[in-house]
Amino acid sequence: MALSKKQIERLIAVSRYYYQDDLSQQEIAQKMNLSRPTVSKSLQLARENQIVTIKIQDPFENTAVIREQLQEKYRLKDVVIAEQANYDEQGILEQLGAVTADYLDRIVTDGVTIGINWGRTMEAVANHLHPSHNRDVQLVQLKGSVTNSSETNYSADITQKFNQAFHTQASLLPLPIIFGDAQVKQLAMQDQFISQVVAKGNAADIALYTVGTTRPTAMLFQSGYLDADQITQLRTASVGDVLSHYITADGALAEPDLDARTVAISLDQLAKKRYAILIAGGQAKLQSIHAALVGGHANVLIVDQAVAKSLLAL
């Protein structure tokens, strides 16, 4: 409906009184000798005709503010927030992978050692890596990679793509994620080759990892090393895992006996890294991300926008 000049002038006047002068609709009606319903309709028409537009300034949409607040809350050296168009899990992974690859371009220098993990998040990072111009970069696996499951953990593909990007050959840890017996694990760790790989992982400058959940579909639950009773216990006692170390809501080890059979860099060693980079997103991982951060298991967080906001609310 086309508005006359007189109608537009009235809409502008009503809008100024309401939005700029903070008068109530009743006060405007008395001031302009109009009925209250007419004032209400005028405000609606003003918005419909773009005379008035509403813009909500959400401070949490300012990623710079979110970054600072997350750094302060969790005592982090850096936070990177990936742009997020929607809540699609694969879309979030792609964004996380892209910004992590960019972040590596900034922090990787000649001669550094990068510790890598496996899984869908790390696969997304590997897919977005750029060819590096740095020299003598070394790669090392931070945990065992052999599983009893036919479901892929992307370990081989991730390693190949990291090797190509950094022009090197990763040191592999060709052991099960979890041994059936702690003593057998200790014997395996004493092997000269294995102990060298572990030492290299402990000395790595950069550690890249994500967190797991306790959802029934969690990759570790599909690995074939945990029976139904163990999975039930973990779903009760923990909120997820950090490099296959299951943790409680406050970031402590949830099952020390299981942890004694787990092949992965220790949480204590992880905390010593120059860059202990936690890459994770999606609301399903919110509690495990929070637990890893309050436990001090990361000093850099790469996360999506929605989870970044949710972390501040916890």
Rank of each mutant, 00 (worst) to 15 (best):
A254Y: 02
K273D: 10
H290R: 06
D268H: 09
Q283T: 12
A284I: 13
L258D: 07
I289K: 00
K285Y: 10
A292G: 12
K285G: 08
A264T: 05
D268E: 15
A276L: 08
K272I: 02
A292C: 12
K273F: 05
R261A: 14
E255I: 12
I277P: 02
I265V: 15
I277F: 06
L286I: 15
T262D: 07
A260V: 11
P256D: 07
R274P: 04
G282L: 06
K273H: 05
Q283E: 15
R274C: 12
A291E: 03
I279S: 10
A292E: 14
L270D: 03
K272H: 12
L253A: 15
G281H: 00
S266T: 15
I289P: 00
I289V: 10
Q269N: 15
L270G: 06
D257L: 14
Y275K: 08
H290F: 15
K285M: 13
A254C: 10
Q269K: 11
A264P: 03
G296W: 02
Q287Y: 07
I265P: 06
P256L: 09
G281S: 09
A291F: 05
Q269T: 07
V294S: 03
I277Y: 03
L270M: 13
L293H: 00
A291C: 07
G295S: 03
A271T: 14
G282A: 10
E255L: 12
L270Y: 01
K273P: 10
L258I: 08
I277H: 01
A291I: 10
I277R: 00
L293K: 00
S288Q: 07
D268Y: 06
G281T: 01
R274A: 15
V294F: 04
A252M: 12
G295F: 01
R261Q: 15
A284N: 13
A260G: 09
L258A: 05
D257H: 02
I277V: 15
A292T: 06
S266V: 07
A292N: 04
H297D: 13
H290Y: 14
E255N: 12
P256F: 01
Q287M: 09
A280H: 04
L258M: 14
